[in-house]
Design a protein around this nucleic acid. Structure first.
Length: 162
DNA sequence: GCCACCGGTGGC
DNA sequence: GCCACCGGTGGC
């Protein structure tokens, strides 16, 4: 279960390259990496990864015989995710912003009204203020987990923090 | 004045 | 010692 970033990215924020632009999962049988086209599809797979592990043949046009989509190497920075994180609630947008020093991510949810949520505490408070959301969404539907950045794939020019 | 970004720290 | 959380602020 992985996500990757690289220095090439779609413009999702003011600072290109600081967000995740490729989502991929590893097949539990052949161990090849498969790129998942959208964050939403990726989150769907991730949300039940333990009880329903990913295998290549779940993708419509792929099997374990096909070469892998991408390789784990330092042509891009890799970060390791956790299985079974909650899917982003409908109407919300989840963003992971990588700090310039590659030390960690900041995780945000953009609420339907544009409000930016920065922590579980803020998410809970938001739901309390918006009972209409609370019907379908609970605080446990938010995860501010920051994926682990793989040090051996951090660009050499980045100055490491001591 | 706002907000993206970063730094500091309290609580575990 | 770590990291979730949030206050502060520089740059716009």
């Amino acid at each position: 279960m992985e996500e990757t970033t690289s220095n090439k990215s779609k413009k999702q924020s003011t600072n290109p390259g600081n967000s995740i632009n490729t989502w991929s999962v590893q097949c539990g049988e052949c161990f090849k990496w498969r790129v998942i086209p959208t964050q939403e599809q990726y989150e769907e797979i991730r949300s039940k990864f333990i009880e329903d592990p990913f295998v290549c043949c779940k993708l419509p046009t792929v099997s374990c015989d096909e070469p892998s989509d991408i390789e784990y190497d330092n042509t891009r920075t890799w970060v390791i995710d956790k299985p079974n994180l909650p899917k982003t609630p409908p109407g919300f947008k989840k963003r992971l912003v990588l700090r310039k020093d590659y030390f960690k991510f900041d995780c945000y949810y953009d609420a339907p009204n544009g409000k930016k949520l920065r922590s579980s505490a803020e998410a809970s408070r938001f739901l309390d203020k918006h009972p209409e959301c609370k019907k379908d969404i609970s605080p446990s539907d938010f995860s501010f987990f920051s994926p682990k950045i793989m040090e051996d794939t951090i660009p050499a020019k980045v100055v490491k923090k001591i």
